[in-house]
Amino acid sequence: MAQKKLSEIAVGESARIMEVDSGFLAAKMADLGLFQGNDVAVIFKAPLGDPMAVSVGGTMISLRMDEAQLISVER
């Protein structure tokens, strides 16, 4: 199964997080439940396609595209 970036996942689809690029934002994302092994669903995107709203563990989180690009997922 090919890995994709979370930014490439379409609205309404979900995927499992395989890896989050390390760094300052990775720790921030982990606080909210965005870390390896969790399932994430793309709920909607802003009218201009950016940012996107995802759901993980019952929480809705907004992510800019360049932030969603840090997250590798597998469908």
Partner: peptide, 9 residues
């Protein structure tokens, strides 16, 4: 800045 934040219901 960044936009990683919760969207409350």
């Amino acid at each position: 800045g960044f936009m990683v934040m919760e969207i409350p219901s």
